[in-house]
């Protein structure tokens, strides 16, 4: 079980809301927000995704000083594998087949600027399925709990990821 701290600040809430196309002033206007039922700026429903910024081991962010699997001069920054060890290339291939299949949130309390959330992640179920568009699909569930400074649950997030056998066709 991995654990890290997620510092919530007002600017991050504003940037996140913009990025999903949400112009609701509750996400950036303190004065407006103080006169509403929630009484202040709160985070939008899917905001906890931004906790990835604070996850020290998040794999989908370039790590300073390490090769990145996205493109640079070539389509992938990873070197072709040496015959005996296929780890790096396998990693790049697997990443290309990874997709987000499902996401669920249970909301216990609103998230507000200044919150320091403790994020704990554990593995849930995993299963396989034959798909028409994506070949053999391997699903796995990750359950993430966000707790505030007093230890109260704020959000429970369950994510289902899928690794497909091939690129998902569009028919």
């Amino acid at each position: 079980m991995a654990e890290f701290k997620f510092q919530v600040d007002a600017s991050q809430i504003m940037l996140f809301a913009r990025s999903v196309g949400d112009k609701n002033p509750i996400y950036h206007d303190k004065e407006y927000a103080s006169g509403t039922e929630v009484g202040g700026i709160v985070a939008p429903p899917t905001f906890v995704q931004a906790s990835a910024q604070y996850d020290p081991k998040f794999p989908l962010r370039p790590t300073i000083g390490e090769a990145w699997f996205g493109s640079g001069k070539e389509a992938t920054g990873l070197k072709p594998k040496a015959k005996e060890s296929g780890d790096k290339e396998k990693k790049s291939g697997d990443s290309a087949r990874m997709l987000h299949a499902e996401q669920q949130y249970i909301y216990h309390k609103p998230i507000r600027p200044g919150d320091e959330l403790t994020v704990t992640t554990k593995r849930g179920k995993s299963w396989e399925k034959e798909g028409r568009r994506g070949g053999t699909m391997s699903f796995s569930e990750t359950i993430t709990e966000f707790r505030d400074a007093s230890g109260d649950l704020v959000v429970t997030a369950t994510s289902v990821g899928v690794t497909t056998g091939k690129a998902v066709s569009q028919d």
Partner: peptide, 15 residues
Amino acid sequence: GASGDYMPLHTDELY
């Protein structure tokens, strides 16, 4: 940028 999910499938046409 806002979410921190830099998966190249979403931002890197070549990849």
